[in-house]
Computed example of a mutant assay.
Amino acid sequence: MNPQADEAGARPALVIFDCDGVLVDSEPISLACLTAGLNRIGVAIDVETVRARFAGTSMPSIMQHIAADYGVAAPDGFVEAVKAETLRAFDAELRAMAGAAEVIAALDLPTCVASSSDPVRLRHSLGLTGLLPLFEDRVFSSVEVARGKPFPDLFLHAAARMDFPPETCLVVEDSVPGVTAARAAGMRVVGFTGGGHWGHDRLGADLTAAGAEQVVSDYPALARIIADPL
């Protein structure tokens, strides 16, 4: 029997938040920096293609796909340079999602973060936007597991570290790889479409098709789902 089906309708014991595109509106910035970097090394790709193919995935996975699909191997220092450019852009532009701090602070159940971003970027993003104190040391990165999203490893790792069974967890995700990973981990998942990088009409349908039980575009709606699930 599917444990997710058993838990449908139950209030979650733990809420696991993705970071980029869920807690912070970082994806328009990071996707633009990545696209510019790829163009500089000879990859003919636009930001919409980068968004569609790579949002929600880790840099090592992205570069593997670039090498396989475009025949371009990243020069030494490329990933580090893109990460540094992205962090500088964050300093000038990054904002928390509207309502995120208020809703998370008011939750009366445990929360954590599980993200494809590396630990330096994660803590920088959460610290810059004032969200880090809401999670403290409950921030988990894909570098801590063997396989990133869409595999379930990161979410299973976060649940284990938080000491909760996977079937009692609710994940909030903005990408198909993230939703796929949460479902593979046996967790419920809500799709989030409030980020500035999602401008196309199919996102909600894509997240639903990947396994999101509901899709929301703002934090008040998310708070209602957590308080009164299906």
Rank of each mutant, 00 (worst) to 15 (best):
F135W: 05
P152C: 10
V139Q: 06
R138K: 15
S116N: 05
A210W: 05
G211T: 09
K149C: 09
A158H: 10
A210S: 07
E213R: 14
G195R: 00
T111H: 09
L203G: 00
A212E: 02
P150K: 03
R121N: 12
F151T: 05
A160D: 14
W198N: 12
G196L: 06
S125L: 10
V120S: 05
T180C: 07
F140Q: 06
A158W: 03
V190M: 07
S141E: 07
F164N: 04
F192W: 11
H124L: 08
V190A: 12
L170R: 00
T168F: 02
G130W: 09
R183Y: 06
A114D: 13
L156Y: 00
A114Q: 09
A210R: 02
D137V: 09
G186M: 13
L203I: 10
G191L: 00
G148C: 08
V145A: 13
S115I: 03
V179R: 02
S115F: 01
S117C: 14
S117Q: 07
L128W: 08
S142T: 13
M187I: 15
V143L: 09
T111K: 09
D174W: 01
R183E: 00
P152F: 03
V189F: 02
H157K: 02
L207N: 01
E167P: 08
G194P: 01
R138D: 08
P119T: 12
W198E: 08
F155I: 06
G194M: 11
T193S: 14
S117L: 11
P177V: 00
D153N: 14
A160W: 01
E144Y: 11
V216M: 09
H197S: 13
E144T: 13
G178P: 11
E136C: 12
P152L: 03
F135K: 03
F151G: 11
R123Y: 06
V172E: 03
H124G: 01
R138W: 11
G195H: 00
G211I: 08
P133E: 04
P133K: 08
S142H: 02
D206V: 04
G204S: 06
R123E: 12
L109K: 05
E167Y: 08
G204H: 00
H197A: 14
P110N: 05
V120G: 06
R138I: 10
D206P: 11
A210I: 04
E144V: 14
S175T: 14
T180H: 01
P177Q: 02
R121Y: 00
P166A: 15
V215S: 14
E136S: 11
G196A: 11
H157Q: 03
D137M: 06
G191M: 02
L134H: 04
A184N: 04
L131Y: 03
F155Q: 03
A182S: 10
T208G: 07
D153G: 15
V172I: 15
F192I: 03
S117D: 05
L122F: 08
P152R: 01
L122E: 09
R183L: 04
T208M: 11
D153E: 08
T168D: 15
L122H: 07
A185P: 03
L109E: 10
R123I: 13
A160E: 15
G195L: 07
T168A: 15
T111L: 07
A146F: 04
